[in-house]
Simulated assay, not measured.
Amino acid sequence: MPQDLLALPPVTLFFLVLNVVIGAYTLLVNPSLIDRWAFKPYRVVREKEWARWVTAGFVHVGFMHLLFNMITLYYFGPYVEAAVGSGRFLVIYLGSELIANALTYWKYRDRPDYSAVGASGAISGVLFSFCLFEPFAMLGIMFVIPMPAILFAVLYVVLSIYASKREVGRVAHEAHLGGALGGLALTLLLYPAALGIFLGQIGLG
């Protein structure tokens, strides 16, 4: 884990700072921005509110939501950025968020009441990109339960599909799934060597 915040790779540091600044501002100073910037599938095309595709990834419903996403980015972002380079990492981060929103749009495009916020799509993409490089790294699920990254990835996809179909709670499970799959696809597309690294790690390379 990085010891010095300023020693983080530039793109990881940029998104950490930007998310924290915007998150704190919207939660403490101007909460109305959360609704104005949220991803609302019903409105983005009908009202041509294209900015919501991006702005939704920088507002959160609460400080715990923001904290969990930023801790995950802090742990895994530096590794992925160092592995693929800052330019590719930028595309993986933003691309995963857009793919997550695309899946959300497809499912909820006819629901005027639906909205979603948070960087979870982008964070899921970063986490799953990490799994390509270190599939057997032990993750502390909820910071307590040890689990290899590859097992976590499989369970994450299965549970996200299940929860999305049943619309469990108010969590955008399809966005988590879209971001995760987007992170995998973009990493393999932008950094094809990741496939060889993954296969080598699981004994098939």
Rank of each mutant, 00 (worst) to 15 (best):
T55F: 02
Q3I: 10
A180T: 09
L103N: 00
K107N: 02
T26P: 03
V29G: 01
L103S: 03
I22W: 00
H173T: 04
Y75T: 14
N30T: 12
Y93N: 05
L6R: 14
M138C: 08
L184V: 15
L127H: 03
I197D: 15
L188V: 14
R88V: 12
G118T: 04
S129L: 06
S120W: 09
D35C: 00
T187Q: 08
L90R: 06
L18C: 05
G182R: 07
Y114P: 03
N69T: 03
Y25M: 12
L186Y: 11
W53F: 14
T187S: 13
P112F: 03
L188Q: 09
L66A: 01
L127T: 13
M142E: 07
Y42S: 09
M70D: 11
H60V: 01
V171L: 02
G200I: 07
S115K: 13
A100P: 06
S32H: 08
P78G: 08
L127E: 08
F130H: 13
I123Y: 04
Y25A: 14
G23V: 02
I145R: 10
S164A: 13
M64F: 10
L73H: 01
C131R: 04
R36P: 00
T55G: 04
T26V: 13
A7K: 15
G205P: 08
L204M: 15
F152K: 01
L188E: 03
L127G: 04
V59C: 02
I123C: 07
T187C: 10
L66Q: 02
L199I: 07
L33R: 11
F133S: 07
L155A: 11
S115M: 09
H173I: 00
V171M: 05
E47V: 05
